[in-house]
Design a protein around this nucleic acid. Sequence first.
DNA 1: TATTGTTATACTCTATAACTATA
DNA 2: TATAGTTATAGAGTATAACAATA
Lengths: 142, 142
Amino acid sequence: MHMVTSVHHSLDGLLSLSLAVAEHTERGLRERDLSRSEARLLWSLAEAAPARQQRLSELLGVTPRYVTRLVDDLSDRGLVERRPHPSDRRSMLVTPTREGERLLSRMRADHDRLADALFGDMSPDKRATFQEIASGVIERLS
Amino acid sequence: MHMVTSVHHSLDGLLSLSLAVAEHTERGLRERDLSRSEARLLWSLAEAAPARQQRLSELLGVTPRYVTRLVDDLSDRGLVERRPHPSDRRSMLVTPTREGERLLSRMRADHDRLADALFGDMSPDKRATFQEIASGVIERLS
DNA sequence: TATTGTTATACTCTATAACTATA
DNA sequence: TATAGTTATAGAGTATAACAATA
C-alpha cells in the first residue's frame, strides 16, 4: 500500500481527527444531558471540591455570573450543592452531591472505556510515537 | 527518555490535541471575524458555487432558515452575493464576490502555512504513521 | 475600598413553525 | 401539491454592567 502523505494530507487528517473527537465528546455530553461547561464544572469539582464560585470561574474561564447560572442548574438537578462558607459569609462552597459523585464515576468509566477502545490494541511503541507527534503539534499550535 | 504511555496518557494526549486544534481554528476564524458556519459556507462555495441556498443547507447541515441568515450577513459584508436563479424563480444562487474570493485565497494560504508549520519537518514515514493512527481513531469513534 | 455572588439585560448561534411565491 | 426561501419566534450558551452584602 503506497500512501501519499503530503503535509496537506496530514493536516486534513489532523482536522478530521479533531472534529471526530469533538463530535464524540458532544454526543457523550448530550447523552448525559450536560453542556460542556456543566461537565467541566463537575469535573473540576472532582479535584477542587469544595470550591468557591470565584475559584470555579477561574478554573473554567467563564464569568462569575455564569458560574451562578451553572451552579443553579446543576443544583436544580441534584448534582451539586451550595453550602455557606464557614468563615467568609460572602462566599458559597460548591460540592458534588452523592448523585453528582455517581455521575462523575460514570464519566470516569466512560473515559476508561474510550481509552481502551482507541488505544488498547496499539503497541506501546506506536502509542509513544502518537504521544510525541501530538505534543509536537500542540506546542506548535500555541 | 523513558516515556510511560498508558492508554490513558494516549487519550489525554488525543483530547489535548483536539482541543488545541479547535482553539487554533477558533482564533483563526475570530481574526477573520467569521463564525464557524460562515466560514464553512464560504468554503463550500469554493467548490459548489453557484449554489442554491437549499444546497448550502444540506452541505452545512443547518436549516434553510439559518442559511438565509448566514447569506444575509455575508452579503452585508460584501463576501457573497445572491442572484436570481435563471430558470427557477423561487431559488437564489449564491456566489462569492471578488472580495469573497480574496478571502478564500487568504484562507487557503493560512491552511498551507499551517500544514507546513505542523508537518513540514516531519519525516514522510512519521507522517504516514500519524495518518494511520488518525484514521484508526476516527474509525473507532464513529 | 475591594471582593463575592446575584439581578437585570443583551448578544451570538441555531432551531421550529407558519407563511409566500413559485413550480 | 410540493419546494425555496423568508418572517416571526424561541432557546441554549455566554457576556457586561450595576448592585448588595460582606470583608
